[in-house]
């Protein structure tokens, strides 16, 4: 139990858990910000997997770290864009509930 930190499978399990939790959150949340939070969880699970593989298996240990850095950059850009979209939606609809955005519904 105490030597879990040297096992690849531990990290893969945590990564899978983060991914599944984020997936569940995206399906279950109805506010846009809640979905954004869940998608951050998914990205975080992916970067944990990359880091684990780069630490245990890859011949070049910098590769996963650099990939994780790029994931962080993309996630920051995505969060900025998504939050400004949320604010613009709130200004137009006075709501950030995803079920209220029904202008294109026939």
């Amino acid at each position: 139990m105490l030597d879990l930190c040297n096992d690849l499978n531990t990290y893969l399990m945590i990564g899978a858990f983060l991914f599944a939790t984020g997936f569940y959150g995206i399906l279950q949340r109805r506010s846009l910000i809640g979905m954004l939070i869940s998608s951050e969880l998914i990205l975080s699970g992916a970067s944990l997997n990359f880091m684990a593989f780069s630490r245990f298996l890859a011949p070049d240990p910098t590769m996963g770290q650099i990939f994780t850095l790029f994931i962080m950059g993309i996630a920051a850009a995505e969060a900025a864009i998504a939050l400004s979209i949320v604010i613009a939606v709130y200004r137009n609809y006075k709501s950030i509930d995803s079920e209220d955005l029904t202008d294109l519904k026939g």
């Binding site: 893969l12 899978a16 858990f17 991914f19 939790t21 997936f23 569940y24 399906l27």
Partner: peptide, 15 residues
Amino acid sequence: FFGFFAAGLIFWGVA
């Protein structure tokens, strides 16, 4: 419930 089920399935598969 279906979201929970699907997420559990994904976790089980990936793990």
